[in-house]
Design a protein around this nucleic acid. Structure first.
Lengths: 388, 388
DNA sequence: CCTATTTAATCCACATTATGGACTTAATAT
DNA sequence: ATATTAAGTCCATAATGTGGATTAAATAGG
């Protein structure tokens, strides 16, 4: 599609977004400062701020003043009192939901342990819907208006269709259609990357590795998620490490998942779960250390290919690799730096995710908030809540 | 940077771009049809078209008419008579230049065989500058006004700095600063991908593999080049095929380049050059066929990783792989499909580049033209030529 | 051959939005 | 108490697009 024509209303919508975006970036700012920064006139900024105040997206506060002359300005900053978004997630063992407000403060969080592998999609979705309704209701009693939602699922999504989710045993499910409110369905790894971006204080360019059972990755470039042609980008788990290696469930051989996936890691170390593994690592058990070293090396090899192809600024390890970071980072870094140092000025930094397991849920809510800030105009007159 | 505020002039500039873009897309169109398509009023479209006519970017032509009633419209279409762009390229053995007009017709093409390996950058650039001046002069005598230029170089470029070009023996050269006219410097593989997009009639989403001495790749998603965080994306040649394989000049081991690079391919086949290799392949020589099969398999393995990570819609083989396509495509396709079929609905199609060796030069000129069409406003009053 | 119909393109009064300078307001400095 | 300074608002103006009326140029039909 060609870019759209711009009429007066679009011009206004755009400038509204510019002002709101600047309010977010620059914390509490006076109207005068906003005019200065955006290049719009004070008149225009004032009108915009007025509308945003009315919509409850910004709030006035005392100006941060330190003995300057002249009339003191009244500062405006983002208000978390009205607009909110819902983030949802389905994993093999959990259903979870969170509500974040416009300031990206997490206002509500709930998770339920359920075995979704043993249930058909309809059942799981009905359960999720109930959870979502409860969250929206609770948000409403706090005066919040939930304006959108995102659902994170463990598998590749293209145009709302969850192609396959091995961990759930789902295939070709239009998960969004099974809910009675509008929702955007997106891959868990992609949303986790966005969660890291908005809630973890990540940089503007990074590759976020989110290993659970499989190994996924989400690439953020210039603050934007890279999705590829069909939204299937970031399948780090099936990058080839050894072309003649062991068979993988994907049909290929020697995929990263066979070396650094949760299953491989636990089998090699003899631990029953990641918590047990970290315990053993802390105790210095040789098996565990060796398993981590080998997995880290394989991850480093796969990341070498990823860096050569996608050129991320930083690599952030999340998912099961976050708790293992202390032990796995060394081997990863070594494998990468010996292979990458020659070609580029600098090898991407390796960082640990600051977010826990709900990075994707948060990213989902953040995605909605981000869109509202990028185009607040539709939410101006009355931000209508999700049709329950 | 936040998105910029929009004033009336920006609104106008944007709509001008919408109209011009639609003229390009829809071939000869009447003003009325443009109004219909863009959603702007006939009044507005007429004013825009008037300005574009004056700027020489579009031209009127007889309306394509087949016995309809009503006043016939006068159709407008892109005009190649005024605005043009210069594409330049440096390779180890050549300097080349081309001039394309607004319709992307190639108006001029010249190439000189020179051994740039034996010359310092200043000397090569002086030579290139001479070539460029001659091309611009010649274009001017044809009534064309060259409004910008792009230089393709065989190495990663970040912010105008050519980090390293092994084939030229250059390191850290600001090539653009050595010319006396404004130029954008960009990686050869990236520009070749854009050349394929604009001149080869490529689809909107593809990964273009352009092997010469090294192996580079350029990813186009939604008609846009993906550059990564520092513009270093697409280093397919150093994707890991065998982590324990032979040492590579990049410092790593088992990189694709060691299996499918020109050097490896020729050594394995015993041919002196690609033309000889194709001859031998055509003759059915076993060594040559085996070499191609092995290279194709390695390329397929590397592309498997690339597809998993970047999700391109199609894979286009260019550079030395274009003439070898007939023999190499099979092994590539097989390696990819066995590894990818399980995870995705469809394995990316494998296509051959329709462009020859000057894909990058063309892409460079195309890039400038593309920008003019995306924002024609600055070129409205008088399209000033490059300061000689 | 003349008139009605139809579509293209232009013209003009009007709506929307941003601008820029004048004005008002509320502080600090003297 | 008065001058100065900066914030925020007001108002006349400029830029741009809209929508309907008008003019232009073709085909269809009597």
């Amino acid at each position: 599609m060609t870019t759209q024509a711009v009429r007066h209303d679009a011009m206004r919508a755009r400038n509204l977004a510019v002002v709101l975006g600047e309010v977010r970036r620059s914390g509490p700012v006076t109207r005068a400062a906003l005019a200065e920064i955006t290049g719009l006139t004070k008149t225009t900024v004032s009108k915009m701020v007025g509308d945003l105040l009315e919509a409850g997206m910004v709030a006035e506060s005392a100006a941060p003043r330190d003995g300057e002359r002249g009339r003191p300005g009244t500062a405006v900053s983002l208000s978390g009192d009205r607009v909110a978004a819902l983030g949802l997630e389905i994993t093999a063992g959990h259903l979870s939901a969170c509500v974040a407000d416009l300031t990206l403060a997490v206002r509500l969080r709930c998770a339920q342990a359920v075995d979704n592998r043993s249930r058909p999609p309809v059942e799981t979705m009905a359960h999720l819907q109930e959870l979502a309704h409860r969250a929206v209701d609770e948000a409403r009693t706090a005066g919040l208006s939930v304006v959108g939602s995102t659902l994170a699922v463990p598998g590749p999504v293209d145009g709302g269709l969850l192609h396959t989710a091995p961990n759930l045993g789902w295939r070709g499910v239009r998960a969004g259609d099974l809910l009675d409110f509008p929702v955007t369905v997106e891959n868990e790894a992609n949303l986790a990357a966005l969660g890291e971006l908005w809630f973890g204080g990540g940089p503007d360019d990074f590759l976020h590795v989110s290993g659970e059972t499989g190994i996924g990755a989400g690439l953020v470039v210039g603050g934007e998620l890279f999705r590829g042609a069909h939204g299937l980008a970031g399948e780090l788990g099936h990058v080839v490490v050894f072309p003649d290696g062991p068979d993988c469930r994907c049909g290929g051989r020697g995929c990263l998942e066979r070396y650094a996936g949760q299953e491989a890691l636990l089998r090699a170390s003899g631990a029953a779960g990641v918590p047990e593994l970290t315990e053993r690592l802390r105790a210095g058990e040789a098996d565990a250390l060796r398993a981590c070293e080998r997995a880290g090396w394989a991850l480093g090899v796969a990341l070498t290919s990823a860096v050569n192809l996608m050129d991320p600024g930083t690599v952030v390890l999340g998912g099961i690799f976050a708790p293992l970071f202390e032990w796995i980072a060394g081997p990863v870094r070594e494998a990468m730096s010996t292979r990458l140092a020659g070609m580029r000025r600098s090898v991407p930094e390796l960082a640990v995710s600051r977010l826990g397991g709900d990075a994707a849920t948060l990213g989902g809510a953040g995605r909605v908030i981000h869109r509202v800030i990028a185009d607040p105009a539709p939410h101006l007159p009355t931000a209508r809540p999700l049709t329950l």
